[in-house]
Design a protein around this nucleic acid. Structure first.
Length: 544
RNA sequence: GCCCCUGUGGCUCAACGGAUAGAGUAUUGGUCUUCGGAACCAAGGAUGGGGGUUCAAAUCCCUCCAGGGGCACCA
């Protein structure tokens, strides 16, 4: 089955070409025909503004153009359309036929969890890296915001036919590890605060030789920091991530790049390409050659390498060793300033346009009515664990997924808790549980071969099917524009269509044939609801 | 100063340049002798201000106002 939206698009292009052949329309290049869902049902199930678009280049009345296109369409007269109308400035509106809709139910049932699997990816390999918060403390709701987003975007790509790797990059190298060590030792260079620091202090001091640690030597604080970072990753971050419902394919350690000489290699590589120079005792990368607004340091005065040097090495590894055709990094908005440096780096390596960086905006927390920017250094934060304990993973995920990544979230825990009880996720899960309740009661083994789908003709039944067949469109659109909030929106609309069907159409009835066909319809609904919830990583309960 | 993001009903959010700006929640009123009421139906209420482009602007351009983020040899 093709997506019906695609069929309509092809149909229009065909109609235009035929009209051109007959000289009803002059020759012009057809841009991609846009098909949308009108909000008002009287404008049909699908509509297009093509005539208006064309009128611009042709300098012709859009109504005239839509009439010409419509004439051709009525000659082609496709079976899946009941009628086509043209409206006011030049819209062409499409109404889908009952027969087509009725047939889709069977198609969905046959495909089950494969319904809406697309072939956009053609096995291309995409890596999506998200969260990647420093191992210096627990995940906060701020730095974990990219979690639900990245995880679901990965799921969408998978469904669209890409090979996907979800990765977490662990910055276990650099100054913050030293700072962590000092913090755990509670010496005068301590930076991080919080209960977890106290616990790490106890844990590490109990484990290691107290004398060598308390010696206060820098080496020791580094060792303590490394040890602490490992504990934070293993016992805090990995645990939280699991509770968030995220499964990473890879945990990659920055220190590994340094140990294996990958960072030195990259510096040598850039040297050979004459893209570096010395200034003020540091080694600079001429990133301004690649659209950066300034050059960047790779090796500091003290001989240590910058984060950027490691990150370029990391991305070379992604492209050269792991052969990703595309890499998507999801970062917090505070890393805005680093984008052009890394982009310049990957371009110098010859991987221009293969790296996409997506920023998510920040979460501010409201405490005592005061807005506060979260900061692990200041000890001002709200941890993801706390939130998960309060509302659970399903509500948390839905809460974040609903919102565009560009919104600045004001997080008020009191409000979040209050809203969690009324979270729309329950509305969707309830629809799913309701279906199972009917199925349990019906105890009916229907036979697909004898179902009369033509009995499904109530407006609420047809409307439900219309919602079902939109699912592939949701996957396709999201794989293309990354607007993940579309999925919870869709899920809500689907659940709503089901609840309305439930109100209007009784499944378990005396009429055996109708009973059977409706049973099959709710089976199909079950399949699509399940697929949608799976995509969002939200559980699908049979009972609530 | 320069760069990125944001400003939509009381609150939280949607809306590929499209048709009467769509939901949830809150408020008010209604449905029900329930295949699970965590449901259904209805009412009121919104695009920060000002210009412009367009047949059509929440969306694009300019400007002003307000908020968040960034302009490190920190990550």
């Amino acid at each position: 089955m093709n997506m019906i939206r695609e069929d309509i698009r092809n149909l229009i292009e065909k109609a235009i070409k035929e009209a051109q052949k007959e000289k009803k329309l002059p020759k012009f290049k057809i841009n991609k025909v846009l098909i949308e869902h009108p909000e008002n049902k009287k404008f049909g199930d699908y509509s297009t503004n093509t005539a208006m678009q064309i009128s611009k280049t042709l300098k012709k009345d859009p109504m005239e153009i839509s009439k010409i296109i419509n004439n051709r369409l009525s000659i082609i007269n496709p079976k899946f359309l009941e009628k086509i109308e043209i409206a006011k400035p030049g819209f062409i509106n499409f109404f889908i036929s009952k027969e087509f809709l009725q047939n889709q139910v069977l198609d969905i049932l046959k495909k089950e969890e494969k319904f809406s699997d697309l072939a956009l990816g053609r096995k291309k390999k995409i890596q999506i890296e998200f969260i990647s918060a420093n191992p210096t403390g627990p995940l906060t709701i701020g730095n974990a915001r990219g979690g639900p987003f990245g995880d679901v975007l990965g799921n969408v790509f998978k469904k669209a036919g890409f090979k996907i790797e979800k990765a977490y990059y662990i910055n276990d190298f650099g100054k913050q590890i030293l700072a962590l060590g000092h913090s755990v030792l509670k010496d005068k260079e301590a930076v991080y605060k919080g209960e977890y620091i106290n616990e790490l202090n106890k844990k590490i001091l109990a484990r290691s030789n107290a004398r060598s640690v308390l010696g206060g030597k820098e080496k020791d604080s580094l060792k303590v920091g490394q040890k602490a970072a490992k504990i934070i990753i293993d016992e805090m971050i990995k645990k939280t991530v699991r509770k968030m419902g995220i499964k990473y394919d890879k945990w990659f350690f920055e220190s590994q790049l340094h140990k294996t000489g990958k960072v030195d290699e990259i510096i040598e590589f850039l040297k050979k390409k004459k893209l570096v120079y010395k200034k003020d005792g540091a080694l600079w990368f001429k990133s301004s050659k690649y659209n950066d607004n300034r050059d960047r340091v790779l090796v500091k005065q003290d001989g240590s390498k910058t984060y950027l040097a490691g990150d370029i090495a990391y991305h070379r590894h992604k492209f050269e060793k792991e052969k990703f055709t595309k890499v998507i990094d999801v970062w917090g908005a505070d890393h805005y300033g680093d984008i052009s440096g890394l982009k310049a780096g990957t371009e110098a390596l010859g991987y221009k346009d293969k790296l996409e960086i997506i920023l998510h905006q920040f979460v501010t927390i409201l405490r005592k009515g005061e807005k506060q920017r979260m900061s692990k250094r200041k000890g001002v934060y709200y941890t993801m664990d706390e939130l998960l304990d309060e509302v659970g993973s399903d509500v948390m995920r839905f809460f974040f997924l609903q919102k565009s990544i560009n919104t600045h979230l004001n997080f008020d825990i009191a409000l979040a808790k209050e809203q969690s009880e009324k979270n729309p996720v329950y509305y969707i899960q309830y629809a799913y549980a309701r279906i199972h309740s009917i199925l349990r009661k019906a105890q009916n083994n229907y036979q697909l071969s004898i179902i009369n789908f033509q009995l499904l003709k109530h407006p609420s039944e047809l409307n439900l099917i219309k919602q079902l067949i939109r699912f592939p469109e949701v996957v396709e659109d999201t794989a293309k524009d990354y607007q993940v909030q579309r999925i919870p929106q869709y899920a809500f609309g689907l659940a709503s269509a089901f609840h309305q069907f439930y109100r209007d159409c009784k499944v378990i009835t005396e009429d055996k044939a109708l009973f059977q066909s409706r049973l099959v319809l709710i089976e199909a609904t079950k399949v699509v609801l399940k697929n949608t919830l799976d995509l969002m990583g939200i559980s699908a309960p049979k009972k609530m």
